[in-house]
């Protein structure tokens, strides 16, 4: 195979991987803040995609407007999920296993809500970036690949700025580090955790919006994507920002390369085997997050 073709495959893989990284980042953020592993992340992503479908595909709003509106709506959804559901359970120290079951139930609930509202037919909306293949010096790429990479990069920089450069972000990180100490410093834990949920849901929604040119929307697409996102989180290192990003890209590239070189049928199996191997050999992931809960 020529070098150009390789670059093409890898760039496609990176674009796919970034889309896994975004929900994975959400999982990582929530894990840091609350010690809760959100199994509903993939379905929140799907919900974001469907909200976009309604705003952009059906109501014909301009792309930018519907993008921002979707983010706002999904952010609110995340905020309220935390306020009315997960924070009260965390506050009363409900057994972590019960909360875990709660996130699984939330995932099923959202999936079936989508099914009831929008139906089971795979749908998609017009690709806003155009469908003409671009030729960059012998490398053929769809324009959305470039756009995905650009938007994701911008989003990640924005996210880093919010977390590192603003008061709210600092407060969020303080809550993630030590809830009691943060509380004593006058930080409202409930608000910060709700904000974390809000942020991670909004990031997942970005991924749900951008993924539609690649994968059509179906109510249960969240399942497979969330497993990939979890793989990204665990391979990269749960709780680590750059680890999650790299883990997602690794999953995306590995999947695309495997699909091209070996067979697309078993690409998901391949990813799971890699994940299991990682969990057994290096449970902390590439960036060695702390997995063990005690001792």
């Amino acid at each position: 195979m020529s070098v150009g073709l390789w670059i093409q495959i890898i760039l496609n893989g990176v674009a796919m991987g970034v889309l896994y990284s975004l929900p994975a980042l959400g999982i990582s953020l929530i894990w840091n803040a609350t010690g809760l592993f959100n199994f509903a992340q993939g379905d929140l992503l799907t919900l974001g995609g469907y909200v976009m479908l309604t705003l952009f595909g059906m109501m014909k709003l301009p792309y930018i407007v519907s993008f921002v509106l979707t983010l706002a709506v999904m952010g609110l959804v995340g905020y309220f999920i935390s306020r009315i559901y997960f924070y009260p359970m965390l506050e009363h120290r409900v057994h972590p296993q019960i909360i875990l079951i709660g996130t699984v139930a939330a995932s099923v609930f959202i999936r079936n809500l989508i099914l009831v509202i929008w139906g089971t037919m795979p749908t998609t909306f017009k690709n806003p970036f155009g469908t003409k293949v671009m030729n960059l010096g012998g490398i053929f790429l769809m324009p959305h690949v470039i756009w995905i990479l650009g938007i994701a990069a911008g989003l990640l920089i924005l996210l880093q700025y919010i977390l590192r450069g603003t008061m709210v972000g600092t407060a969020m990180r303080a809550v993630a580090q030590n809830q009691t100490a943060a509380w004593l410093m006058g930080i409202r834990n409930d608000r910060m955790i709700a904000l974390t949920f809000c942020m991670s849901t909004a990031i997942a929604a970005v991924s749900g919006i951008l993924i539609t040119p690649i994968i059509p929307l179906t109510p249960d697409m969240g399942g497979l994507i969330s497993v990939k996102a979890m793989a990204a989180v665990l391979i990269g290192g749960l709780g680590s920002f750059s680890g999650t990003l790299i883990g997602g890209i690794a999953v995306g590239v590995a999947e695309t390369v495997f699909a091209t070189l070996v067979t697309p049928t078993y690409k998901d199996v391949f990813i799971f085997l890699v994940l299991v191997a990682f969990l057994l050999a290096r449970p902390g992931g590439i960036f060695r997050a702390h997995v063990s809960e005690k001792v």
Partner: peptide
Amino acid sequence: LSGPFLVVTTVGFGEI
């Protein structure tokens, strides 16, 4: 593995 890590493994097994 414990907690969520184990659950992810079982989800992966189910998909495989």
